[in-house]
Design a protein around this nucleic acid. Sequence first.
DNA 1: ACCTGAACACCGTTCAAGT
DNA 2: ACCTGAACACCGTTCAAGT
Lengths: 241, 241
Amino acid sequence: MASRTRPAQRRTEALSRERIVEAAVELLDAAGEGGLTVRALTQRLATGPGTIYWHVGNRGGLLDAATDAVVAAALATEPAGAPGTPQDEIRAIALGLFDAIAGHPWLATQLATQLSRSPWGLVTPRIFESIGRRVRALGVPEGDWFTAASALVHYILGAAGQNAANARVLASDADRAEFLDAASRAWEELDPDDYPFTRAVANQVREHDDREQFLAGIDLILTGVTTLHPPTGQAPAPPAT
Amino acid sequence: MASRTRPAQRRTEALSRERIVEAAVELLDAAGEGGLTVRALTQRLATGPGTIYWHVGNRGGLLDAATDAVVAAALATEPAGAPGTPQDEIRAIALGLFDAIAGHPWLATQLATQLSRSPWGLVTPRIFESIGRRVRALGVPEGDWFTAASALVHYILGAAGQNAANARVLASDADRAEFLDAASRAWEELDPDDYPFTRAVANQVREHDDREQFLAGIDLILTGVTTLHPPTGQAPAPPAT
DNA sequence: ACCTGAACACCGTTCAAGT
DNA sequence: ACCTGAACACCGTTCAAGT
């Protein structure tokens, strides 16, 4: 029996950047952005602050890495076997991001921060490419690719971010109903002179389904794209006046 | 030595919540979210931390108040005398928010944070109402008001937020050209196998105009809305198959 | 190369005390 | 009612020192 005597070591593997990012995501999921502190991380990983700073530059870099890791995972599940129409694939990708933000609500703020800081980070091209390929498959003329893909990505990130709060409470259906009821009631109590429209749609808030509503917005943009930027060779419809 | 950076002059008026929020916006504009510290505020207002906490609850509340103040100001300029078509008014409101975020880049992150936290804060109804009235004026059937207005608001906030970085450097045309050139070049250098679409549109990035692009997205949604939710009495177009 | 932990500068917030 | 400033707990980050 040639069993190697394993030296008693604290951790079985050396700490890695991946392991640290993984722990960061766990902390963020558990307690939001405020939950990610270097000290909480050192405790969870049984190490000192110096180790964190040796592997990842600083807290900001860690936040960026966590964001990229979660987005990459969400987009990785996209080629779901059977390819559908470009529209179907866009809906699937969009829902994947929507659900990722629902599962990691801190993503909403973090994506806004990261994207507003520099559009050529890691995250933007990833999302842009994924949507863009389907825009191309739609037959949109090349000159309109950037406009069409941008509109979709902007909408997806904007809508998903603003639904993060709803989704967080989605756990129980009763909680969700209570949440929507409270939201609806708050809107019904607004000043009738200042907020006639918002009051009028308050009951639609109570009954709506986040994901359906989100997809309805996607369909509005897709309809606009195929109407204003039809495949080359087909005449564009006259602008609605 | 009696030299001070600030004249040891006593304030003429008592501090007010409005004055504090105003100073907070100045600090945010000057140095981003990190620039707003209670200590920087006490120095600028020549007071102690207790005063800040007496007038506004805490730093979070101050951030919310600053966000609401800037958004309210942006929406207040909307009734620009001559009323146009609902489409024109939606474009004008959207551009107002776009420019507000461009002038106060910290708004992007702050809006995402505030909206993802609770959709029934102050800011959401303000924006929603402003857009919603024009959706109604468009003749959209009442059952589709919420969907149409939501799509527009989600897009506006998403797109404006993601353009905050570009806008920040918009000061000089030369700086802007350099910025877009760097962005375009970064995309051209992506892996050809992983990012064919993104590389293909890289040169459109260099030439695009933020505001035009933003409005093009608005028009895509408006086209979708008038196509899928035409005024009652007109038959909706068949879904694209 | 990787890790440790004390130390530093800074932060949000509280509160007894003043006017 | 409004303001002051010391004090507290906590934070991100650094760095000389260890293996």
